[in-house]
Design a protein around this nucleic acid. Sequence first.
DNA 1: GAGTATATATGCGGGGAGCATATATGTCAA
DNA 2: TTGACATATATGCTCCCCGCATATATACTC
Lengths: 263, 263
Amino acid sequence: MTDRKRTTGRRTRGKATAPDAGERAFLETYDPGAFPRPSVAVDVAAMTTRDGDLHALLVRRGEHPHRGRWALAGGFVGIQESLDDAAARVLRTKAGLPGIFLEQLYTFGAPDRDPRTRILSVAYYALVDADRLRKACAATEGVVLARLRTSWKGEAGGPVEALDPEGMAMPLAFDHADILGMAVKRLRGKLDYSPVGFQLLPPLFTLRQLQDVHEAVLGRRLNKDSFRRSVVTKGLVAATGEMERDVPYRPAGLYRYAMPEDA
Amino acid sequence: MTDRKRTTGRRTRGKATAPDAGERAFLETYDPGAFPRPSVAVDVAAMTTRDGDLHALLVRRGEHPHRGRWALAGGFVGIQESLDDAAARVLRTKAGLPGIFLEQLYTFGAPDRDPRTRILSVAYYALVDADRLRKACAATEGVVLARLRTSWKGEAGGPVEALDPEGMAMPLAFDHADILGMAVKRLRGKLDYSPVGFQLLPPLFTLRQLQDVHEAVLGRRLNKDSFRRSVVTKGLVAATGEMERDVPYRPAGLYRYAMPEDA
DNA sequence: GAGTATATATGCGGGGAGCATATATGTCAA
DNA sequence: TTGACATATATGCTCCCCGCATATATACTC
């Protein structure tokens, strides 16, 4: 969330500067309709980890263009609505998911990316824990949780394929394969130096669950001992003293996310 | 197979999909003027390193709004122009800098960020070697190279101050202090895992110059031996065999950027 | 030729990552 | 009740990278 609602004083804010007389006169005669303007939309890549792989929420398009293909949740930005607000509204109204972690990703602006007219898409990614996203998908017609497959390795980047439960590729609308690719790349890049990974888990979790999340995001296996050591010595997690229950093996300790000391 | 071919064909651009009859009819009756639309601009933070600090190109605003303040090079996006093209055009026409490294940064969309009307800014950052940026600023009236000072440490993020040669703060227009802050933060984050740093140097450089660039960007001193070892063992640079000249001490070897082997 | 500033190479010690081993603790089945 | 089993948790070892120190090399200046 960097659409700063507020910062300190006039330095960062256009509006906070009191216009002088000349500027006021200028603004009264300014004609905002002098140039043709593109439409601006937001598209949200809502992702989670499940069964060892990243998954994303997709919406089946019921209307042209690209009717029948699968798209990210999206919508146009209101003329007085901030970009962050628009993304949160789209996720809330189209997927029934309020209060979700959201971060701006990239703005896609190829002139021909939408066959209707010039439409810019300010793409966001959202992170949800698996249970919550699964329930949200089940509650809405035409919304599914699709497995993601990256043909590229590491953080090289590139488009992403969406697979249905049978492993068949689902055709994606517009440039949404590229948006998903950017989302996966960004997530991989931020995973080990920011706490985004915890957004994909419930408040209490085992270290094994945290490692599963990291492995699903990165697409590769991690050393168990090193992972435990690094996450504990960095002070990222705190033991709660509670244990997991009803598992057919020795139960693991439950941890919660802990803000590092130096923050 | 047909599905697959269509998927790969249109993955990167909406236009590549041949619309069926229903979609074609829809497009013919689509009214793009149904919703009010914001204006969309690009702003470019052109940066370099000099005298141990990051500097940025700023333009003195000769017109309202924010007349007399200092702003990034910016301009509106043409209705059929890609965002990348718009950023490159702005840098070329407003600063006389063609062929510069450019990367999209973030899109700023607070509803009141511009007092005229709703204007989104798709921000870019550009990296130029110091000599070239200095010459470009000297060649254009009202364009200067301002020293940047960050009040925050590391990659925490926040607005940035611009200082004139006497060390006085230069008032920045709109939310451009936030844009510069995001640019510095992004640059710091990418410096050690991508070759962006080489954009700030001439083709041939000494390891000391490369280290100076890294220190100026990061805002802290680095260990000389470790820096040399890591950059050499990673294969990021290749010795040319040439030496620097006309220096009052033992001349250092000249290196050039080398694409790592695994790319 | 002495003085000086910097480049370049080598060696040492600590900390983290990867790996192996040992022990602990729950469920399940006989 | 007891042992098999799967996983958690703890400990120790090695290797590599980073930071630091030292030694030597090489240009210019006086």
